[in-house]
Design a protein around this nucleic acid. Structure first.
Lengths: 348, 348
DNA sequence: GCTAGCACTCGGTAGAATCGAGTGCTAATA
DNA sequence: TATTAGCACTCGATTCTACCGAGTGCTAGC
């Protein structure tokens, strides 16, 4: 993990004492949710100076934008910039033994399809951190068709099931405007296999132009499948512990806003991918562009298979979230996930 | 829709005036969330009596358990029993033109797989009512296998895709402990088809006991599929508008509790099915057994295909929810859904 | 450059005063 | 007997005041 990459302007370096004070303020405020005064800084930080000195340093830190005073004669609270400095200069977070154990056990035990694993992972991550978790499964590459199967449910309702090289399975209802016999469907299925295997959804496919039932079935099937393109291109989102939102923020209105964003999966995906793309793993307050999430921080860690990014795990909490633990948890889970999918798990 | 079935004890009949007053209190309180006093009752109800008379009636209603006073010298608030009476004696709810239009348009436009339709329906219902909606898709009957397909993703990873007569598609990762050739897999696939088509998940299947790759593949596939039984038996739940929870309740703790229940889909399913089974479509406060949801009311309407119940649509709101509108919306949507699936939609 | 000392600020809390919506009771009335 | 007008009373909500104390900024001295 080591030090986080520093993406803010370069001249944000603070001398040791200022840094110590800032760190103390952030730590304390994360803990208590209260403004932090000069004396409590001295209690938690190892500094051999008087409160007055701390105060004057805090004035400087405020001038430089790392802290704010909610009102005169109150302690200081970190700004987004303050948190940012804190996060950028964070030592490797430590994960509790119990949590490490929990992760290990989880991945040793978890089985089943990718979707199920991700969904459960999302719950795990949320339990580990007490924050809301987001797991994104991005489509990657252009999977080719491994197999197609057209079956009929009844005379006019057919189901096209397509299996892709990445393990995705897509089903399409095909509703014909004419009755088709069993053997028509079987024949169409055979032709579809010949036609589609090895192609991608982007490929142009030469469909038969005849007008018999089989050809019509084939045409409708191909059309149905290709119409699905947006669906299969969509990222899947798994959200765990949405009730944690209510714990993390106090204003009911804030809770509503955050939940509302989470509901719109599209937004969540773009949020997560934005953060990943920007190369930083933590976005604090206004750093991600989402107005409604300005009191949130988001931690994202990539998941890859064979070096290729295929998704991400994220955590959403208040700006005063427990960064070290949360970052460590996200990182650990993302690594376990990566390994899980790369080697295919022990058996899983 | 007409009058709701009355499931409470039979002697809960109130004389006309008491009923009028109770109705006025409920209506007013749903509107304002405030305790309702005798004079505001007179404003909204058509009664030619004095406030004093209303008060004495309210004392009686309180004695009989329909109303409570939050504290002396405050207005009255309905109890669960009060809401129950109100709901049981409700005239057919009216759905706004705009909403009817919205539903109609939705079902005219909606396409795709059952799951997608239900998910979108859930969102629709939530938008229509401003409450959180729950749509449950129950497995019904014992679908038989229509087709099986075993494909290999790489030498040791295979994917078993099974299509059932009800249109369900189940995929299982099969991870072999040995390398299998393409033709092994193809042969296994063929045998699996012969073996499984027409069976249900409950059927006992005679698997080959030989020890060649093909037989082992077949055995592992069947085992994998049958291990899935709980999964395919599970109801699917689609929740829409969970952010509405934050609007419906004021205490953050209540919001958290409700969200937490919603997260546990199992609970939601049992809740919905409980209510359906009890034969009533509305459960108010303590009527459903869920402690944590004691300040909620739940409205459930069944969805059936060919007369057989296959799921339900539900709404979750505060006990002081707008019953007439919400019930009308749930009923309308459930009917549209039923029709949508019965005739298969115009094309859809 | 640091610190002790001190005046000052201002949010939070507690208590008192007040307001007013709404009650319950009683005595008068139809 | 049912209804009502009248009235004293209750009690949450609101406002105001006083006050405490955490925490500040400033200044003078080390």
């Amino acid at each position: 993990m080591a030090k986080r990459t520093n993406v803010v302007n370069a001249n944000d370096d603070l001398d040791t004492r200022k840094a110590t004070i800032l760190e103390a303020v952030v730590t304390e405020h994360i803990d208590t949710a209260q403004p932090v005064g000069s004396s409590s800084v001295l209690q938690s930080a190892e500094l051999d100076v008087s409160p007055a000195t701390v105060r004057s340093e805090m004035v400087a830190l405020e001038r430089e934008g790392y802290l704010v005073q909610p009102h005169t004669s109150a302690g200081r609270v970190p700004t987004d910039k303050g948190y940012r400095y804190f996060v950028d200069h964070l030592e490797a977070g430590t994960l509790g033994r119990a949590q490490q154990e929990q992760i290990k056990e989880f991945f040793a035990r978890v089985r089943g399809e990718v979707e199920d694993v991700l969904e459960q992972t999302s719950t795990l991550l949320s339990q580990l951190t007490s924050y809301t978790s987001v797991v994104v499964n991005s489509p990657h590459g252009h999977p080719t068709v491994l197999s197609v199967q057209l079956v009929n449910l009844d005379a006019r309702h057919h189901l096209l099931v397509t299996i892709f090289s990445d393990g995705t399975v897509v089903k399409n209802s095909i509703q014909a405007t004419f009755d088709a016999t069993h053997s028509d469907v079987a024949e169409a299925s055979k032709q579809l296999n010949a036609l589609l295997i090895g192609t991608t959804l982007e490929s142009r496919v030469q469909v038969p132009s005849r007008n018999d039932s089989v050809a019509r079935l084939v045409r409708e099937s191909v059309a149905g499948l290709h119409a699905d393109q947006p669906t299969i291109d969509d990222d899947q989102v798994f959200i765990g512990g949405s009730s944690r939102v209510a714990e993390s923020f106090d204003g009911v209105e804030t809770v509503r806003k955050v939940l509302s964003i989470l509901e719109q999966e599209l937004l969540v995906v773009s949020l997560v991918e934005d953060i990943l793309a920007k190369g930083l793993s933590v976005a604090i307050g206004s750093e991600h562009g989402f107005e409604a999430l300005s009191s949130c921080a988001v931690i994202v860690a990539p998941v890859s298979i064979d070096g290729e990014p295929v998704g991400a795990v994220g955590l959403l909490g208040p700006t005063r979230m427990k960064y070290p633990e949360a970052m460590a948890a996200a990182e650990a889970v993302s690594q376990h996930l990566t390994r899980h999918f790369t080697v295919g798990g022990e058996r899983g």
